[in-house]
Deep mutational scan, measured.
Amino acid sequence: MASQGTKRSYEQMETDGERQNATEIRASVGKMIDGIGRFYIQMCTELKLSDYEGRLIQNSLTIERMVLSAFDERRNKYLEEHPSAGKDPKKTGGPIYKRVDRKWMRELVLYDKEEIRRIWRQANNGDDATAGLTHMMIWHSNLNDTTYQRTRALVRTGMDPRMCSLMQGSTLPRRSGAAGAAVKGVGTMVMELIRMIKRGINDRNFWRGENGRKTRSAYERMCNILKGKFQTAAQRAMMDQVRESRNPGNAEIEDLIFLARSALILRGSVAHKSCLPACVYGPAVASGYDFEKEGYSLVGIDPFKLLQNSQVYSLIRPNENPAHKSQLVWMACNSAAFEDLRVLSFIRGTKVSPRGKLSTRGVQIASNENMDAMESSTLELRSRYWAIRTRSGGNTNQQRASAGQISVQPAFSVQRNLPFDKPTIMAAFTGNTEGRTSDMRAEIIRMMEGAKPEEMSFQGRGVFELSDERAANPIVPSFDMSNEGSYFFGDNAEEYDN
């Protein structure tokens, strides 16, 4: 993207840094990872977990959730003011799984939030270390993106479920800051804005008074975040219109849905970061690795190297396929839920299948599930090659597409044709070009129609051997075009429920 120079890199967003050079960025990201790792080690000690239990991804998720809940100030305040039966607002906890007599047992633990905050700050040299908290939120978000298709949420806001490739980060909490905003897809931002506008339509006082002023500035800020994701002048001009509207209503909703559809071809720039579970960072720190000293990046080879040398386990339900569970977590670790499966298959070195073909449910185990038949197995999170994460949407291309997802959002900077089903997408653009945004709409449609099938995206960008740390010898991959490109292809993934 041309304006790259004016933006802070995501590592800076990730670490609240002012302008830093590459070495400083690597050190501050490393410091953040160190903090998460030290916190995780301490929690495993508190909970008396064995090494194996500490490497269980379900335990990692519970521990991450506990610290996120302990620092969720708004919710904590709300819980104190609106006490609900049987919930102690000062405590947080969740299921911890232990191996007892050759069987997995679930144990519900409860801790004072104050105590968890103390352990977290102690692991982070006394700081609140917001960057580390956001990092864990993005890992949870990436896992949700890989596990669930947001059909219901899309339909509720009037969008087409086939636009799911635009929904990265749709389950990120509001408090995820600049680093969170960077990884949100165009569809996620559109959905947040539509929800806001709908509230304004239904509630006369939404934009009024002292609160209304705050609401208005939040609305304009979200519009600017979305505008910054678009790469064409016409899309940005249309966002200006939406932002400046005196009284946002149905016309703005129409414009936003139009823009979301246009992003299936004229893709937005959305950041991709490899955020790993805390149970990967903990053992690495415990083994003596100093992330701050060595430096770390979320968008280069580092996460690949770390996963190459990590042992992570997962509980497996009786009829689940461990290899499929591994694929789910591998995609989440690489922030690749909406990437082209052919690119992923090449990088991973084994075939990556669409969601609907995987015999696996989510990673988390519900409290009512029976533990008797639970097994555990090693997650295979290694890769054959590594590639640089991208934040450009890439230019655009036609490809055989599917009944489910009709476009992709690249996660890796790797040369390819970008699949999208042009006739299906263009069919949504018939007729409606009147109104105050008509010239911009016409211009956007013209650009979409001009998108050429034979153009290559990320020209000359390749993948790298894991021994090639400096990215000196790019390998331009070859793809098996007979395979499906979309992950949520004609899909039956479970729906995400809060």
Rank of each mutant, 00 (worst) to 15 (best):
D491N: 14
S69F: 06
N334T: 05
T62Q: 13
S377G: 15
E210T: 12
H135D: 03
E454G: 15
R216N: 13
A471F: 10
P161C: 06
V352C: 07
Y281N: 03
Y97V: 09
R243A: 00
V299S: 05
N473P: 05
K184P: 04
S141I: 14
L276G: 12
G54R: 15
R8L: 03
G35H: 14
M238P: 02
N125S: 05
S170N: 01
T360D: 09
R342F: 04
D240N: 15
S274E: 10
E443N: 13
R441F: 08
S297L: 10
G30T: 09
R436C: 10
K227Y: 11
N370A: 03
I425G: 03
E380S: 08
P477S: 14
Q12L: 01
M137R: 12
Q399A: 04
Q459K: 03
R195A: 06
I301C: 05
P83T: 02
A337C: 01
V270E: 10
E375Q: 01
V329F: 07
R348A: 06
L266S: 14
G37H: 08
N144S: 13
P419W: 10
I33W: 10
Q235S: 11
N492D: 12
L49H: 14
K77C: 01
L108K: 07
T130H: 00
N321Q: 03
S314G: 13
A451C: 14
T437Y: 13
A218I: 13
G300P: 11
L226W: 11
F291G: 06
V408R: 09
E495A: 07
S345G: 12
E73S: 05
S345Q: 00
R150S: 04
I33A: 06
D468T: 14
R150V: 09
E469C: 07
E375C: 00
M105Q: 05
G356C: 08
G169E: 07
R355Y: 10
E375T: 05
Q4E: 00
A85W: 07
P89R: 03
E455D: 08
V29F: 04
P354H: 05
Q12N: 01
K305P: 02
F346C: 03
W386M: 04
F464P: 00
P95Q: 07
M238A: 01
L418M: 01
A286Q: 15
F230P: 14
D372A: 06
R19H: 06
